[in-house]
């Protein structure tokens, strides 16, 4: 669906995006993570045919974005980080304007508008003026506008910025629903928990470089080759630590600084080894009340990969 090959953008001596390579399939929700100034927006704008790449190539549905921008545009829906809406127009009029601009036949427009309003939960606001909608509703209306022509690829640049917690949850649920509908979605954000819930793939970008990209699980596995196990006992973990040190597969043991009854360890073994470890601890007389795997979250991944330097 989407392929980037060494996509590059420079402004004079400034390298905004350096050799980004990526491949996404239909239904993929790709979380584009990076600090401000990392090059996320520039990459998205290149895909949206608004900026010409300096080098490399991007293909949407097999069509070269740089060479055939007019052919690519109907395939994508683009929601910028700072979007503008027309004032003095009702929500349905706004959508009809864009339906007409995308040359959707007149006879189909009403039903399409109704369905995107329903999808974005704006049916009740159909006759409301755009300027009277809340920020969250305007955000959803902008997303509805991106959907009227049924694009295959959605480019959402910071779609949840400036929203209150409820509106954030709404927009996350909506993006997840669109992913289930088979649309390929690129969603950028620098708020990591925002993406963790619904992205199946992520890419971390810093100073114009895509540091890592791929399936979330694969990246976590790459950064954390072993399994991280959290154990909680009824009493202090001093004795437990001694027992654990005897196991070859147990690597780092990190006691919980705030809870003397808890610790975390890195275990280099398979799931059967994990079960054997638990059995031997219980057989050894340790009062285990909790034993479970914990993975890295996106924040851990991000902190491990990035240096924190901004261009």
């Amino acid at each position: 669906m989407l392929e980037l090959h060494n996509l590059r953008k420079t402004y004079g001596t400034l390298v905004a995006v350096e050799g980004t390579t990526l491949k996404l399939e239909p239904g993929d929700i790709f979380g584009f993570i990076g600090p401000n100034g990392a090059g996320k927006t520039t990459t998205i704008k290149m895909l949206a045919t608004l900026i010409q790449p300096t080098a490399g190539a991007a293909f949407i549905d097999g069509i070269d974005v740089a060479k055939y921008p007019l052919e690519v545009r109907p395939l994508l829906g683009y929601m910028p980080d700072f979007f503008g809406l027309y004032d003095d127009i009702k929500a349905w009029e706004y959508l009809e304007f864009f339906a007409s601009a995308y040359r959707i036949p007149k006879s189909d427009r009403a039903s399409i508008i109704d369905s995107v309003l329903e999808l974005t939960d704006l049916t009740e606001k159909k006759d409301a003026y755009v300027q009277s909608l809340s920020r969250g509703m305007q955000q959803r209306l902008c997303l509805a506008k991106c959907l009227v022509h049924d694009p295959k690829l959605l480019l959402l640049d910071e779609p949840a910025s400036g929203l209150d917690p409820r509106a954030r949850i709404d927009i996350k649920a909506l993006i997840a629903e669109l992913g289930r509908m088979g649309k390929t979605i690129i969603v950028s954000s620098h708020i990591l928990p925002e993406l963790a819930d619904f992205c199946n793939k992520i890419g971390i970008m810093e100073r114009g470089k895509m540091l890592v990209s791929g399936h979330v699980d694969a990246i976590v596995r790459q950064l954390q080759p072993g399994r991280r196990i959290a154990i909680r006992t009824l009493g202090p973990t001093n004795g437990l630590r001694k027992s654990l040190e005897a196991f070859e597969a147990v690597q780092t043991i990190v006691p919980d600084e705030q809870d003397e009854c808890a610790l975390t360890l890195d275990f280099h073994g398979d799931i059967a080894g994990e079960a054997a470890l638990l059995k031997s601890l219980v057989d050894g007389g340790h009062d285990i009340c909790s034993f479970h795997e914990t993975g890295l979250d996106l924040e851990d991944v991000f902190m491990q990969i990035t240096t924190g330097k901004v261009q």
Partner: peptide, 16 residues
Amino acid sequence: GEREKSTWDALVLTRL
């Protein structure tokens, strides 16, 4: 005014 209000990009991406 369209460019100022950031509505221009949305227009450009349509088939207008």
